[in-house]
């Protein structure tokens, strides 16, 4: 890092008036994000609770209905998301090392993987809609014996739908990061948004890692 102290002094434009220094601002943002992630986990926790309750009431329902889910594409999607977690971590590393180009490239790869995930999800949904496995009262599939099959798929759609919404929000955040990175906003002294978006993205990934076995791999 060949920056002189004068250059570093210049790059305090990110510091907000109520913080004493960059460290305090960075620590606060990071802590705020962690607390926010706790709320995210609890939001999904509500759905997991519904999942657990119904699974304990109707274990056979889950065994039967999960066969309708495509474990192959689920596995592919898991790999895609784990890959994107790696690239987002690399993006943070690039920012820390002042490699803005690397940061942008890694962000684009992450976005690409996230879009791939959504496309696969789209085909999964479309295949089910075709069969009549629609959410809620629109459910009209008769390939499953269990009378509460509609509820399994309600839970499936709520969980994967809410997760998909988070993926889309993540894509939006990363597009915004790319824009800011091109404006040369980030540097080794200030990359907080990259860091906390990375945290968010890891959470999205972790939630999927729970959803995948719970929904796709029951037997």
């Amino acid at each position: 890092m060949a920056q002189t102290s004068a250059e570093l002094e210049e790059r305090l434009d990110h510091l907000q008036h109520h913080f004493v220094d960059s460290d305090q601002q960075f620590d606060s943002s990071k802590m705020g994000m962690w607390v926010f992630l706790v709320t995210e986990i609890l939001t999904f926790g509500g759905l997991f609770a519904a999942y657990i309750v119904y699974r304990s009431w109707y274990p056979e329902l889950y065994l039967e209905a999960s066969t309708e889910l495509n474990a192959f594409w689920g596995t592919v999607n898991t790999a895609v998301l784990i890959g994107s977690s790696l690239t987002v971590a690399m993006a943070i590393r690039s920012a820390q090392l002042n490699q803005i180009k690397g940061l942008i490239i890694n962000l684009w790869i992450t976005i690409g993987l996230a879009v791939t995930f959504m496309v696969i999800k789209y085909f999964e949904y479309a295949e089910k809609f075709e069969k009549g496995i629609l959410p809620g009262r629109y459910y009209s599939y008769d390939g499953l014996e269990h009378e509460k099959a509609n509820i399994f798929f309600s839970i499936y759609y709520m969980m994967t739908g809410l997760h998909g919404l988070h993926v889309i929000i993540g894509i939006g955040l990363m597009l915004w990061l790319v824009k800011k990175a091109k404006q040369k906003v980030f540097h080794s002294g200030y990359y907080t948004p990259v860091e906390i978006t990375g945290l968010f993205w890891h959470l999205v990934d972790v939630i999927w890692i729970f959803l995948f076995p719970l929904l796709y791999l029951i037997d």
Partner: peptide
Amino acid sequence: ITVLLLAMERLLGIGI
């Protein structure tokens, strides 16, 4: 999440 499920209950009839 509770009120979201309730809203979905009315919108889609998710049945939970």
